[in-house]
């Protein structure tokens, strides 16, 4: 056999999936902007509903964002799924992503700021004439010498026509090839090889619902970009940012967030510490998703964008949807995979 013919609802778009290829890769190759982020089954963004035909998670894949009941009910993660024969599936498509070219480039390190003991903020610059187009919330991959890749979200919004200045937030994971290099020998003017943009962790432009942004650790990076993009576009939707960490140092841009919240009437900022907080701590204590639960008896009319550890994302998705009525279609996530 040679591939599968897939029809996408509700748009009616069609594309071909080659043998062994995931449905997501085939769709992206065909220029169809399906929602996805982690490409490894953890984030759940590429969830779809099989309407007809054979759509199966491939052996060895780990669609952990779905429950056994979800799968029995026909739900599939397209980053893990292969197709055969003729398949019809339901999946939303993302506005504003289709048509942004995927590019490989080299980027020069222009600054390395140590925002905390284990957090580096890298400023990168692309060569003349090689601006990168992307939407806030998307990420790039750094391609290492052994061809392995590391994913980092752009931490600032792009300007129209693309931007040559990129900012990445890197947490040190001792023992990891790339982050040991970043926290050891990486110097200003060094070149990095990158490819991007990837992912669809972007604000839904068609919605006017209030926005809750949840971040843990360097999950703050895409959230900062989303805030910048919202301000560029003069977005009128109210935004509340919940940023969680263990210690105050984990909230490495806490002062900026407090200033933005003071200056911008549409923005509320809620810092949350789960570890030892200092006696004079004026933020919240506990888990970031618990702070959201405490503040919102009803989330049926909200959208939630969560970026950080998969533990936080799994806990936020299950509690906010089951206990506060948040529609699963209004929960968007960017899960960290712990590669170093």
């Amino acid at each position: 056999m040679s591939g599968a013919a897939v029809t996408l609802l509700p748009s009616g778009r069609q594309f071909v999936v080659a043998d062994g290829e995931t449905v997501l890769d085939a769709a992206l190759r065909a220029g169809i902007a399906l929602p996805y982020q982690c490409r490894s089954g953890e984030c759940g963004n590429c969830r779809s509903q099989c309407v007809a035909g054979q759509l199966e998670h491939r052996p060895g894949s780990t669609p952990t964002a779905l429950t056994a009941d979800d799968i029995t009910g026909g739900a599939r993660l397209l980053c893990c799924a292969t197709a055969s024969g003729t398949v019809t599936l339901e999946c939303r498509e993302v506005d504003g992503i289709a048509g942004i070219p995927l590019r490989r480039a080299t980027a020069r390190v222009t600054a390395i700021e140590r925002a905390a003991d284990d957090i580096a903020v890298l400023s990168l610059e692309l060569p003349d004439g090689q601006a990168l187009e992307y939407r806030a919330g998307q990420y790039l991959e750094v391609i290492l010498r052994d061809r392995s890749r590391r994913s980092y979200s752009m931490a600032t919004a792009a300007v129209t026509g693309g931007t040559r200045r990129l900012e990445l937030h890197v947490r040190h994971r001792p023992g990891g090839t790339f982050t040991d290099h970043v926290f050891g020998k990486l110097k200003v003017r060094e070149m990095l090889r990158i490819e991007g943009p990837f992912g669809t962790f972007c604000l839904d432009d068609r919605s006017d619902k209030p926005i809750l942004l949840l971040a843990t650790g360097t999950g703050f990076a895409p959230v900062q970009a989303i805030l910048e993009e919202a301000w560029q576009q003069n977005l009128q939707r109210p935004i509340t940012l919940y940023w969680g960490g263990r210690t105050p140092a984990d909230l490495y841009r806490d002062a900026d967030c407090r200033r933005w919240a003071a200056e911008r009437p549409g923005l509320r900022y809620v810092p949350v510490l789960s570890g030892d907080a200092p006696d004079n701590w004026d933020g919240r204590r506990g888990r970031v998703q618990q702070a959201v639960l405490d503040d919102h008896p009803d989330l049926t009319g909200h959208e939630v964008y969560a970026c950080g550890s998969s533990a936080m994302i799994d806990a936020a998705r299950s509690t906010l949807c089951s206990e506060r009525g948040l529609p699963t279609s209004a929960f968007f996530a960017d899960a960290f995979i712990a590669s170093a």
Partner: peptide, 11 residues
């Protein structure tokens, strides 16, 4: 193409 090799990756 119109690119500077000083912007290239060495390997």
């Amino acid at each position: 193409g119109a690119a500077r090799l000083s912007d290239g990756f060495v390997e």
